[in-house]
Design a protein around this nucleic acid. Structure first.
Lengths: 337, 337
DNA sequence: ATGAAAGCGCTAACAT
DNA sequence: ATGTTAGCGCTTTCAT
């Protein structure tokens, strides 16, 4: 397992020059640079990241903390972040906080702070003020994806506006009897995304003087079965809504399946709209408001990379709004009659 | 940002003692151990992983390489591995090889070998002999999940047996007209899982003298839409099979949806069985052969941990078979008539 | 453009 | 049980 010294010897230069040649920092004549690269390749030499990190203080590694991995949204964020990072020569280490409070504390205390990462991406997770302060003290950039965090740079869609857009689409089609399947109080999700979406929904209804019907506002858990159960309840009776706005595509898909099982046709008998633009939304013909999680992952990386740049101005803890778009497919139409 | 020296000073001991006290290696009197821990906590001191890694040669980090992240199976493997690792004080760094040949080479060349990881878990991915050799030279344990790899310790289910089990379930119910939706030649999956499953299917059929019908063996891509399209084709005509065995639950779910859209009832008109026990399998009442990806991730970690133990015997490159079980739900029944 | 030398912050012999 | 010492393998001034 050859070290820099071996490369230096074979290339007939000093270790310092090898370091410069390989890292691209510092002046090296083209000739020696090529020679060094040649020798390195030949020897299969790769710098030891720990030695390099110890000397420079940079790990070239970022941590991503999230509540789930196996929800489409999170997977997509991770994929986006990962591939952006790969392009920069950075690694991504994963902290999946499925396990609750205990695991969470352990991650923050023992892992993130262990100088293992240069920066942190927190997805749908709100670090406590203490955690934020800790990170700041260590001068580790942190960026939140999914909701504003006080004192932290964040990337987030305007949840209220997204919900309003979805609801307005239904209203625009002529629906007035609209139900909402929102999120419940998942402890895992720190941001109050469920209630923001509900707020947008209600705002849109009130704007057209169609006050929300309490019985038509259900809470569920962002899963297909959850959406199914809620829709069954909404559509099972005689006095049913003509449209459903679900706070996620997975719930919307569950609702579509429930409608079908109840002998209802979508969109003839009931229109359904979701949020996300899940990979299966197109397959199901689901009208939805697209957010672009993969791009969100990439953007988070871009922001971190500029903040990691030593000549970067003091980072301002602002929230950057993210784009979203209504994607109309075949699950929504004018109400019958 | 205080270092070990500061802790040593405040605790009135030498850095060496602090190191011993904090790492638990080497004898330290209970009194000083507690004192050191106290000071460390007070100062918020955490060892620098790079310094520690440089001194010990251990990163306490394992890499996981996989072709996708956003397929249920892979997400589950990662979750299992991650949580097992967390318990051991290890991190997990993710190498998602979505991007094809180029990205793959780059990961193996520049990342895994950069001494960033102590070991690697390769999921459904077959390292080339060159890559395996490289890893061996660096004495980095590697374990494959998902199929035997020459020269590498692996964990895998017996794909042929799994497929046979699924098929035999249908045969046992009395089906003889059975179709198979298998995997295509996805470049991303290195193991010939698709063909192994097909082989098991055909073996089971031949064993009861019900030779497979070529037109009833379709290839698809492991997705819901893919399964839907294949099933549409199988079930669209008059001369249709009475049962379908899909090589993954996602395809099986697609097939169930297609059947319904064609006005067919499952299982009355057609029985459908999958493989995986996807998180939605229960919701859809899908009969399937469960494999336990999360447990597979955990097991991979267990194996690596013992191999990382310095007093471990030379690892034997064997393949450990993994358990699987038939889970009968409501998508299969005796054929009509 | 290149080299010499001093660390980066720990850990592990070895001594006591 | 604890301290001393010598690295681990790089990077980076500072010279030249």
């Amino acid at each position: 397992m050859s070290g820099i010294e071996e490369v230096a010897r074979r290339a007939g230069v000093s270790p310092a020059t090898v370091s410069r040649a390989l890292s691209g920092r510092g002046a090296v004549s083209p000739t020696t640079r090529d020679r060094v690269h040649g020798v390195a390749r030949e020897l299969g030499y790769v710098v030891s990241s720990s030695a390099s990190a110890l000397a420079t203080g940079r790990m070239r590694n970022v941590g991503i903390v999230l509540p789930f991995l196996n929800r489409w949204f999170y997977g997509a964020v991770v994929e986006g972040a990962q591939s952006a990072l790969l392009g920069q020569g950075y690694d991504l280490t994963l902290y999946n906080l499925g396990g609750g409070e205990e695991e969470r504390r352990s991650v923050f205390e023992h892992f993130l702070l262990r100088k293992r990462v240069d920066a942190v991406i927190a997805v749908s997770l709100e670090p406590t003020p203490g955690e934020v302060q800790r990170l700041h003290e260590l001068r580790k950039p942190i960026i939140g994806v999914g909701g504003p965090v006080p004192g932290v740079r964040t990337l987030s869609i305007d949840e209220v506006a997204v919900a309003r857009l979805a609801t307005e689409h239904l209203l625009g089609l002529g629906h007035r009897r609209i139900a909402h399947i929102g999120g419940g109080h998942t402890r895992e999700l720190d941001f109050n995304l469920p209630s923001s979406r509900r707020t947008g929904f209600e705002q849109a209804l009130r704007a057209v003087d169609a006050p929300p019907v309490p019985e038509w506002e259900l809470r569920s858990d962002f899963t297909v079965p959850g959406g199914y159960a809620a829709a069954e309840q909404l559509l099972g009776g005689a006095d049913r809504p003509t449209a459903i706005f679900a706070a996620s595509d997975e719930m919307a898909i569950g609702a579509m399946l429930a409608a079908r099982d109840l002998g209802l046709q979508v969109p003839r008998d009931v229109s359904i709209v979701g949020i996300d633009d899940h990979e299966l939304a197109e397959f199901f013909g689901l009208t939805t408001v697209a957010q672009y999680p993969e791009r969100q992952g990439r953007m988070a990386v871009d922001v971190l990379m500029t903040e990691l740049d030593p000549r970067h101005p003091v980072p301002d803890a602002v929230d950057t709004p993210l784009p979203f778009d209504l994607v109309v497919r075949s699950s929504t139409a004018r109400p019958a009659g």
